[in-house]
Design a protein around this nucleic acid. Sequence first.
DNA 1: CGTGTAAGGAATTCTGACACG
DNA 2: CGTGTAAGGAATTCTGACACG
Lengths: 109, 109
Amino acid sequence: MAYEEASYKDKKVISIGVVSELTGLTERQIRYYEERNLIFPERSPRGSRKYSFSDVETLMEIANKIEDGVQTFEIRQEMIRQNGKEDQRELRKRMLRGQLNAQFGIQDK
Amino acid sequence: MAYEEASYKDKKVISIGVVSELTGLTERQIRYYEERNLIFPERSPRGSRKYSFSDVETLMEIANKIEDGVQTFEIRQEMIRQNGKEDQRELRKRMLRGQLNAQFGIQDK
DNA sequence: CGTGTAAGGAATTCTGACACG
DNA sequence: CGTGTAAGGAATTCTGACACG
């Protein structure tokens, strides 16, 4: 775990203008979805928003749902549930790994 | 081949300011290496340079070589040789695939 | 050769607000 | 609720050039 590369997909390096081009959303819309806690860009040293490719994908999904008449509040609920599920999956994986280690001493590093 | 995603690694979406932060190089240096044909950013609709993660990696290698006293001209020579090798590898792969197709009719799509 | 810098302009991004519905 | 817009400022990026060595 010496590396914290987080891979290209999650590195926040894209400015709002490019995200706008990539998603077809206006900057106003993108900022609003942040206000509604649907995405969480980082800030560059100078204060401008930086997005990852993951964020771009999330925004495309949000755009689809909004088009279907889903409200931002509901979208957030879905995301929370979704994250909950992922957390459970991770937890299960970790537990399984623990068992294997106990039985066979498989390296966890 | 319906997709042209080119994966995240090669998508040119990073502005020169962020590349500067990521590589530790000044914008002046980054633009100069482009002038010397070592990197090839795309231009956004409005004309600003856009780099990929691949470009960032290439720039880190360039930075190392420059530090070792290698001149931009030599670095370019190396890159050309390197690309030549990759082309040959690709060619060999393609030829092999062709043989297999001829013998067993394996789908190439 | 590789890099710094001052120069002036054009485009980007930010925030808070008013508007419509 | 979700989005558009005008507003003013601050930061970004661009190009061509002069400088040093």
